[in-house]
Nucleic acid binder design. Sequence first.
RNA 1: GGGAGCAUAGCUCAGCUGGUUCAGAGCAUCUGCCUUACAAGCAGAGGGUCCGCGGUUCGAUUCCGUGUGCUCCCACCA
Length: 879
Amino acid sequence: MELSKNFQHNEAEQKWYAHWRDAGYFKSTPDDRPAYTIAMPPPNVTGVLHMGHALNNSVQDILIRRAKMNGYNACWVPGTDHASIATEAKVVGMLRDMGIDKKTLSRDAFLEHAWKWKEKYGGIILKQLEKLGCALDWDRTAFTMDDDYYAAVMRVFVELYEKGLIYRGVKMINWDPKAKTALSDEEVNYKQTNSKLYYVRYRIDGDKEEYITIATVRPETILGDTAVCVHPEDERYAHLAGKYCFVPLINRRIPIIFDEYIDKEFGTGALKVTPAHDINDYNLGLKHNLPVIDTLNDDGTMSAAAQLYVGQDRFAVRKAIVKDLQEAGNLVKEEEYSNQVGFSERTDVVIEPRLSMQWWCNMQELSKPALEAVMSDEVEFHPAKFKNTYRHWMSNIKDWCISRQLWWGHRIPAWYDSEGGLYVAHTAAEAHSKYMAAKPGLAAKEPVLRQDEDVLDTWFSSWLWPMEVFDWNRTPDNKELAYYYPTNTLVTAPEIIFFWVARMIMAGYEFMGKKPFDKVYFTGIVRDKQGRKMSKSLGNSPDLLQLIEDHGADAVRFSVMISSPAGNDLLFDEGQLEQGSFFCNKMWNAMKLVKGWEGRQQAGMDTANVAFAIEWMEARLAEVSAEVEELMKDFRLSEGLKTIYSLIWNDFCSWYLEWVKPGMDQPIAASTYQRTISIFERLLQLLHPYMPFVTEEIYHLLRERATGDDLIVQQLAAYTQPKAQTLKDGALLQELITAIRDTRNKNRLKPKDTIKLHIQTANESYYNGIQQILARQVNAEQVAYVSAPVQGSISIVVQTDKLYIEAAQANIDTSAQKEQMQKEIEYLQGFLVSIDKKLGNERFMANAKAEVIEAERKKQSDALAKIKTLEESLAQLGR
RNA sequence: GGGAGCAUAGCUCAGCUGGUUCAGAGCAUCUGCCUUACAAGCAGAGGGUCCGCGGUUCGAUUCCGUGUGCUCCCACCA
């Protein structure tokens, strides 16, 4: 078989993904094994795969694949979220491009377009996840607006309504004038914005020409003012008690009121009160019984109530009114001012606070068990620091505005009769019966019930995700729900801790009586090299599919995982991408090397010292396997990858393979070959969850495989305790090789120049076991034991052994050697002083643990021995 | 205003329960090599007052306090 020079990722990815899927490896059905379940955070149907998804889904795939290898029945459920506001915006945009105005469409006609759009584009993002290698159980693909899911949402609404937790009411909400809908507090992003603070004077009603000056950043709201408020202890305004003033331009007479809410230091200490368009003003209005004048239309233009500028956009009006105020002599001054302005999470327009009739969900009761669960680690947060954030939000939780003035979504299951009577029911038919029951006299007549026009907040459906993907609503007693729920791990971004994580926990306890997941792993935010958040508007977000195409899915997974500890942001760097593909190549080349030995096997032969190498490598493998298991348990996935990377590149490729490698065209012991293959397989297995394609490909190239013998389904071997001595012996060999190579370099010996090596040691049996490896690794033509220094050689000290290097070409630089030895002796002496100090310190001896004291004694004797050896060598070099 | 977190090599970061064999990794830098898997590579090297100051301790990069600088979340004084 001809092996390509490098790993060809494109072919391998296509081939293996199809193979895994067709072999049914991604599928899960309940069985005797314990379940390991992840319900994927459903991306928006409008979504396109980006770096955040790559990180998030790589993490999940790693957990799933690792669980599978650890004997779990792993189940990873894919799906998408209908994303009401985002999708509706997308569809409206599409219609506009087609020349259709949403306003001209009926609700049904619009929804038809929306569904068509969803069928066409809604699955794209899931297809893209395949490219990343995600081991998703595709048969379970769910959508938050599937019929069953829809029914579940209806049920939950009705239940909460009947419990009195959902109600309708007029409150101040965040209004998105572009999407023309209410938003929850969580959907508003505050941004620091450069504004202007306008000082406007209002004439006081009275004989004198007297004014009171207020400061505002939103002068257009002046038209809705119903009072001016000052602090009761502010002497500047004490004389205005009981007086009135006039709203500029429209001359409405409004009272001057007093309230301690006012900050005397801010602006002029006088506040204009606009109860319709500011939450604080609204509260003041309630307290002081002020009228509410709503001056805005739902599209952000001025309403008739404003009297002026009717129909003009609020921002145009802001400019106009400033000019008009100035002309009227009311504008005192303007100042540059920086403040926080709320923007819509979805449409990025400035939010207008507005009074409006909406549906609300009371969160007090729901939040209690959910808060408790996280605080007691019943639901574990990784990293735990997010518990604080969670607690803070949960203990100050406010009612949730759940209605949205949109069409795409779950329509609120509330019906009204002509007299304003309200019927909340699962279906129109049920609402009908309720109506009939409520009005017995009308039995014969056709009722005219009108369903609420609004839909529910997207999150009001996604909070049911972990339950409903296992068909909770239709068949609450089903086997799958019992088996897979609670799911094991939720992998998500900290940004949606309130939107989603908290609410899922609440829903889990409320409707299932059980938590939705055991653990939450918070990933970081993907940033670019300069630390900026990746975003469309900055254009700094690379095209993920292109990256996969160019570098391979494994390299992409490597690059996002190598530097992303849980909860820490990830600085994405193309360099890491290269590192990942270089790593694939490294393994590819190792495979080529090993494969080259296949035909050179010889039974019964015993290649010198190879047993030592194998024993050591297997011990390292055992040691690292245990380390990785621990790291994975703690979700330290990034560390885990680094550890495996180093095991493969350094221990296996740089050391082990070089140690067992036969000479050019030389035979290799069959047993060595077989054990090398086995070691390689186990390395691939460790790495597989992180880099599934390259590992599967190499696994299959290492030897002929029977059907079903695929890496993805291999089980991790039981952990074996490595021998400490074996590990130490290997480390010593590395130290010897490095020291000699270093000496060769420093003495300008060319790689091809051979040396003669003389060893003075008390431990010849150790050297017998490694001698031939050592000789080859440092290009020594001869190795011998000596009991005295070798004249004319370069001498070095490794631990307490002395090595003498003879080389014909050597340009021996004794001064450099001496200097180095001297430095080392000094270091060791300093080291000794600190140890002596400790051992001579009564309090140390009294307080320190026995092991610590023992260790210190060992260090002391080792250091002494080494100093002695070094000094002897130094003496031999001649001072 | 409230809360959380971070400050370790030129850069990005590890360093879990305090003890000079833990001061480490990757990238970058320097030196030597096209050595029969790999130059997308190999071998080797240099580089850090572990932010400042106090405290606890026999002992602090590690724990506590404080100062400085930065980041994030929440609230939102017009």
